[in-house]
């Protein structure tokens, strides 16, 4: 795993923390919270553009973690991946006034190919993602962001941007193609 940090008692690995959370260890939960609350809150805020709603998502995501930690399978996914996906999906559900979807469940592993356990690693990956988005054309980037951060369907994006549906699909596919190239582990 790239950037694998050196784990110490003061900086236990995510999988160790989640194992302790499953045993009802509050301190382990707050350690995970302190590690990831920033990114979870940021994505919820980006989606919802509302502090109160973003706070709700943040608390909810970590409460779900607390309640379902025993069902988490560290061999199949990463904690950080689950948090990033959960934050986005729950925020979109709230934005679109949907009931939280099953896709947020703990059983869908998100095997993130990067380690985000140290703040240095997080900062590095954030800048890598930002430069990946910087490669996209503005139109591709817009379609990708409306899909990811607003949860819009192709049809909704076409309606919003005034572009033909085919153009929207083509742009999104081009954007996804580029991301596959530049965000490969």
């Amino acid at each position: 795993m790239p950037n694998a940090p050196h784990h110490t008692d003061r900086h236990p690995a995510d999988f160790e923390l989640i194992r302790r959370v499953a045993n009802g260890d509050e301190a382990a939960l707050t350690a995970l919270y302190d590690r990831y609350a920033g990114v979870v809150y940021s994505v919820a805020h980006r989606v919802l553009k509302d502090e109160g709603a973003a706070e709700e998502v943040l608390q909810d995501v970590f409460y779900q973690l607390w309640c379902n930690a025993s069902r988490y399978d560290a061999a199949r996914g990463t904690m950080a991946g689950w948090l990033l996906v959960s934050a986005r999906n729950r925020a979109i559900d709230l934005l679109r006034r949907r009931k939280p979807a099953d896709t947020n469940s703990m059983e869908e592993p998100v095997p993130l190919a990067f380690n985000l356990e140290s703040s240095v690693a997080r900062t590095q990956l954030i800048s890598r993602v930002k430069s990946a988005l910087g490669i996209l054309t503005p139109a591709q980037r817009q379609v990708l962001e409306l899909t990811y951060f607003a949860g819009m369907t192709h049809g909704e994006i076409a309606e919003k941007t005034g572009e033909p549906l085919g153009t929207v699909k083509t742009r999104l596919r081009a954007a996804l193609h580029t991301l596959r190239q530049v965000l490969a582990p």
């Binding site: 994505v43 989606v47 990033l84 986005r88 997080r122 990956l125 954030i126 993602v129 930002k130």
Partner: peptide, 8 residues
């Protein structure tokens, strides 16, 4: 999931 990291 990494796209979440693009949020300000």
């Amino acid at each position: 999931a990494l796209l979440s990291l693009a949020a300000p």
